[in-house]
Amino acid sequence: MIQQLNDSTSEAIQQLNDSTKMFNLYLKLGFEHLLDLAAYDHLLFVIALTVVYQLAEWKKLLILVTAFTIGHSITLALAVLDVIQFPATIIEWLIPITILLTAAYNLWTLSATDGDSATQKTDLNIKYFAALFFGLIHGMGFSNFLKSALMPGEEQQIVWQLLAFNLGIEMGQLVIVGMVVLINFLVLNFLKVNKQNWIKIVNTLVMVFCIWIIGGLLE
């Protein structure tokens, strides 16, 4: 009796141990996927989304990043659970377009951000909506990667794999947001670069990289 109990306990412990290892693997895959410099599209988007903010505006940043996260979590889950299917080739095109639009919008509204509070409010609402909507598109991109990382025969683990991968992406996102805030702070306060010029420089660079990505797709 005690032997049996011991056996089933050690079995349960082993299973828990195995699941933790699996969770760690997918967490790592998600984290590194977002920070992968060779596939920098998601990274560029997070930069474009957050570059106009400073630490004092952390509430706006938090809402913006949360909106993006909700968006990509929804489509990532739906695609991985096979509820919906997206053609990879279209997503490929849509992702750089979302980045391009975000950077272009940042440049477009540059003069408006110092305007009256009503304009600023509209600007923010547009941004939250865009972050959510573009999040949906990026989630489809994440799903293509995660799907190719799932092993046949592990279907019963899928919710954990999905959760771990998504959590890894969040952690990657937070690293990028943290770096953007830090670099912004250093550039604006120590190098004394004018904020408007800085936003122009970064967003122009982001747009150049997007055109680069689109050029690669056309090739």
């Binding site: 060779a38 596939a39 990879a88 080739t89 997503i91 490929e92 991109g141 293509n144 990667f145 190719s148 990382a149 799932l150 092993m151 025969g153 797709l217």
Partner: peptide, 17 residues
């Protein structure tokens, strides 16, 4: 051919041992 061409570069292999 088109999908081969446009497929996103997923630099990943998976294996069961």
């Amino acid at each position: 051919i088109l999908s081969l061409w446009l497929a996103h570069d997923i630099h990943l292999t998976k294996a069961q041992v």
